[in-house]
């Protein structure tokens, strides 16, 4: 019986290893999490704005998301390092005229206002989701995440993790172009 105790670490480790191996062996791109919301109407959203935000302090509502043209919704937080990594790409998209709204996930509004002022603000509207409630509605598993929403307000694409130039060129820009026609 006492010997069995010494088997515990091995058992725990093997369980962990199998669990880590499954997604890799299935050959799944870990960031391409399927979303239950694909091709569904976007969840009803009514979030307050960030008071200190220089560009636009008003919040994010359903009316903003039903813009009659394809838009991006980015979920970010100032405490999130990967968000900083993808930030220049969002700045570039915004400069190209793409409308990007944002959900500021589990963040201090003062911190996120600072963050946007410091690193640039590519967003049209930013909704503050302090308690993560909207994140649950949207099925967010972590930050950053990016959604593409078509003119009728349906979610057409979701990417979990920091965007890269390759993902923009492969998925997002072609999708935006095709939705825009």
């Amino acid at each position: 019986m006492r010997r069995l105790v010494y088997l515990v670490p091995l058992t725990v480790f093997l369980a962990l290893a199998i669990w880590l191996a499954v997604p890799l062996l299935e050959g799944r791109d870990p960031s391409a999490l399927p979303s239950a919301l694909i091709d569904q109407a976007m969840p009803s959203t009514d979030l307050p704005g960030i008071p200190g935000r220089a560009r636009d302090a008003s919040g994010l509502t359903d009316a903003d998301l039903l813009a009659g043209k394809p838009i991006l919704v980015n979920v970010f937080a100032s405490w999130c390092l990967p968000c900083l990594a993808e930030h220049p790409l969002l700045m570039g998209l915004s400069d190209d005229g793409v409308t990007i709204h944002a959900i500021n996930y589990r963040d201090d509004p003062a911190d996120s206002a600072d963050w946007l002022a410091r690193h640039g603000d590519p967003f049209d509207r930013v909704g503050l989701d302090r308690d993560g409630r909207a994140g649950i509605d949207w099925g967010v598993t972590g930050v950053p995440e990016t959604f593409v929403i078509d003119a009728d307000g349906r979610i057409r694409y979701r990417f979990a993790g920091p965007l890269t130039p390759a993902i923009l060129d492969r998925d997002i820009r072609p999708l935006l172009a095709s939705l825009d026609q």
Binding site: L20, P23, P30, A85, G142
Partner: peptide, 11 residues
Amino acid sequence: FLVRSGVLTSV
């Protein structure tokens, strides 16, 4: 492993 496999995302 975590940093290089892309299982988790990070800057």
